[in-house]
């Protein structure tokens, strides 16, 4: 069988079932609000959101691979490109761009101009340290973890903190070789 051509983010987005954007935004808002009530510390909430995102990411990556038909990426550049162009489109309905590559190609920024998560959000003074969309960074970290890339994802710019765009810095820490045995004897 001939390999199936990778599908574009738009094509997949058109085919998957979607929910009302407001429902999505409000649900996410409710989750963050509840976490703030439960954990009280903004730092803890950031951590928790990241962990939740990670747990989503490790499952989501398979859906992404199954539905987008992308094949193995040759390098980290291609990987981030696919995340920005196909991944974000497929799951959030927005397109991101990749910029600010460092010299050795292991660190870059994914820039989001539009982010449905923050449609109605204004950060109060008490929550200034909150990375409201920290779940997204967790998702990316989790998804890349499952395809043997250990990464660190941090927010550089955040519209809620007065910047003009959302900017996520993705840093490739190490690429785990996919060889057997998976450190069985350790």
């Amino acid at each position: 069988m001939a390999p199936v051509a990778p599908r574009s983010g738009d094509a997949i987005f058109a085919n998957v079932e979607r929910v009302n954007a407001e429902l999505f935004t409000l649900t996410y808002g409710a989750i963050v609000r509840q976490l703030l009530t439960d954990l009280e510390e903004v730092e803890e909430v950031n951590k928790q959101l990241d962990q939740m995102g990670y747990n989503i990411g490790i499952r989501l990556v398979d859906e992404f691979l199954a539905k987008s038909n992308v094949s193995r990426c040759v390098d980290f550049r291609e990987t981030t490109d696919v995340i920005a162009k196909v991944g974000f489109k497929m799951f959030l309905g927005v397109t991101a761009s990749v910029t600010n590559w460092d010299a050795d190609g292991t660190c870059c920024s994914i820039v989001l101009e539009d982010n449905p998560l923050v449609d109605f959000v204004e950060l109060p003074d008490t929550c200034q340290g909150l990375y409201y969309c920290n779940i997204l960074s967790g998702v990316i970290r989790g998804a890349l973890d499952m395809v043997s890339m250990k990464t660190e994802v941090t927010w550089i710019r955040d519209v809620l903190r007065g910047d003009d765009v959302f900017e996520l810095q993705v840093k490739l820490l190490k690429q785990v070789p996919e060889e057997y045995p998976y450190k069985d004897d350790e």
């Binding site: 069988m1 199936v4 490790i58 499952r59 989501l60 859906e63 199954a66």
Partner: peptide, 26 residues
């Protein structure tokens, strides 16, 4: 015939009905 596409489809089903089930443990 067509086993590759069947397997591909099973993969999609797995992502939809197994991985998205919050009570399924990886």
């Amino acid at each position: 015939q067509h086993m590759e596409s069947l397997l591909k489809f099973v993969y999609e089903l797995y992502t939809d009905y197994v991985l998205k089930n919050p009570f399924y443990e990886m």
